[in-house]
Design a protein around this nucleic acid. Structure first.
Lengths: 192, 192
DNA sequence: CCTTTTTTAGATGGTAGATTCTAGAATCAA
DNA sequence: TTGATTCTAGAATCTACCATCTAAAAAAGG
């Protein structure tokens, strides 16, 4: 079988994630990752053909873990739970949340062609859950649901992630209220 | 008086903004800006001592223009108008909105010390308007107002800016509804 | 026309970081 | 033990870009 690896892909990604969460993705150079991990740069290139590939893998791993809860809640038809998953997950996985939610564009400025399929899979996974849920809710369009489940919670946690802090409890109340208001079928007419 | 300038600061910033909006801030290298403007790099450095300074100036100019409307609405005590200013301004200034709202971190990764005062001014300007408005609204804390006026609209437009599209009309309805719901003093009790 | 000031002009230097390359070490199977 | 295989190791290379530097051009004033 040959010599067993000393630095696993996951450990490399964890190190890149720590640097990214602390100092931003630009600070996660190959040398910085290798240095913090105590590995030579060559070992990194043994696992990942390029830095782009490494960063894309980092983002993919995080986004999959994150999306899992959202998709689950949507499948159960609980839109509010899906919306609240974001602030809750941020509390439990602060560094990974910062990496995935804050640094998407910088992380994967040039998406490697090799991973086009993986990206597609991630996108369609959420899209399918969203469509299935929207189909069950009369009067709630896809765009409206997307706002309630993705955009709104994202806006609510962003500032706190940027400060390196977990979102405070108030955020959950704000998200829940706004979510209900947006999905409410007859909001303008009193007593409807 | 000496030879009049051929490339003004504003034209340089406009060019940098165009590149940033189209291909991201990383693509806005000094050579790229100069090339698109038809100027040599030397002319850029005549106006801006460094790339960091140029990008910081770009962000400052944009954020000032953007904030103006928000602060005005807050001074008038109209929270909903303040929240709606974001999607409206994005429609009218698509490229600048993308630059200011999407690329803050990448644009000014290292904020130049020379501009510390300017940054401070921008931050306190909004903060003051926010505090003054919050003081007038009983039961509405500063954090809640910040969410309604900043976080919520930001989340609502982000996806559209990333796609290079102006936010659709639906966004205004979503923002307005969510804004009202969040500021509503007694949302839980029916008929309150 | 001549001087002064300001700007253009672009070649050149310097540096940070990604990537490659060659050597050698660790493990497994026979 | 030996050979095949997989990995570590880190120095060397390559590339892209920021920043500098010298020279010259273009006004404005006298």
């Amino acid at each position: 079988m040959g010599r067993p690896g000393k630095f696993t892909e996951d450990r490399i990604l964890d190190t890149a994630m720590a640097i990214t969460a602390e100092e931003g993705p630009a600070a996660a150079t190959m040398a910085a990752i290798a240095g913090r991990l105590g590995a030579p740069t060559g070992s990194l290139y043994h696992r990942f053909a390029s830095r782009d590939l490494l960063m894309a893998a980092l983002w993919l791993r995080g986004v999959r873990r994150f999306q899992h809860g959202v998709i689950e809640a949507l499948a159960a038809g609980d839109v509010e739970a899906a919306a609240l998953h974001t602030p809750r997950w941020c509390r439990d996985h602060l560094a990974e949340a910062a990496t995935v939610l804050l640094h998407r564009r910088e992380l994967v400025a040039r998406w490697p062609g090799e991973l086009a399929g993986q990206l597609e899979g991630v996108n369609t996974g959420l899209a399918a859950a969203l469509d299935a849920c929207a189909a069950r809710l009369p009067g709630v369009g896809r765009e409206r649901l997307l706002f309630a489940v993705v955009d709104l919670p994202y806006g609510a946690v962003r500032r706190h992630l940027m400060a390196g802090q977990p979102p405070p409890p108030l955020v959950d109340e704000l998200v829940a209220r706004a979510c209900r208001a947006v999905l409410d079928p007859v909001p303008e007419v009193r007593g409807g």
